[in-house]
């Protein structure tokens, strides 16, 4: 599946888009991740497109990174605040080398720091970002158009899909190769 062909159809109205997606999907037997809707704003889930993988797997797995990195942060916090105090073992103001309250504070902060980093990492990984390559896209999308983007395997299918999109109300159809 190294070579694939893409079709991007641009729609002015949400209604037509909602109408078109299931038909296109059915016609070309597209799996989750082979059809995408490009929009300028977040639409409530499953209005435009049903993506079960996204809903039930990705969005749940997305919290894995913050969680795991949070644990890493926890460990780093304990090691830094508690561990280095233990290694240095200098008496300051009669405080014990492993003092619980300062360790707790540093641990709390580091846990959150790493969780924040984790959430960014998972955003990048699961969102497929960053991707600076030329991809199927049209600047009209940020001006309010909705785009249906699909991935097919052959040139004939591509042409067929382009016709179908136009028939379903797309005012502009773009064809591309290997740029899903």
């Amino acid at each position: 599946m190294n070579n694939h062909y893409t079709v991007l159809g641009l729609y002015k109205k949400m209604e037509t888009t909602v109408n078109a997606t299931p038909q296109i999907r059915e016609a070309f037997n597209l799996k989750d991740g082979e059809i995408e809707v490009l929009t300028s704003a977040a639409y409530p889930d499953e209005i435009l497109i049903e993506d079960k993988t996204l809903m039930y797997q990705v969005n749940k797995r997305q919290f894995l990174f913050p969680f795991l990195l949070g644990i890493v942060g926890l460990a780093i916090g304990i090691l830094l605040a508690g561990g280095t105090g233990w290694i240095m073992n200098l008496d300051v103001g009669g405080k014990p080398p492993f003092a619980l309250p300062p360790t707790g504070i540093i641990t709390y902060e580091f846990t959150l720091l790493f969780a924040v980093i984790g959430s960014v990492i998972s955003l990048l990984i699961y969102g497929g970002l960053p991707n600076w390559t030329e991809r199927a896209y049209d600047p009209d999308i940020t001006d309010g158009s909705l785009g249906i983007l699909i991935k097919v395997n052959s040139n004939e299918e591509q042409n067929k899909a382009a016709d179908m999109m136009a028939n379903l109300g797309a005012y502009k159809v773009k064809k591309g190769k290997n740029d899903f």
Binding site: L38, A42, D45, L54, N59, F63, L123, Y126
Partner: peptide, 19 residues
């Protein structure tokens, strides 16, 4: 970052900004 506004991006983005 090559943002296209795909459904997947939005969905993941919303979760991340909530978190």
């Amino acid at each position: 970052l090559g943002w296209r506004g795909s459904h997947r991006e939005w969905s993941v983005y919303n979760k991340a900004s909530m978190f």
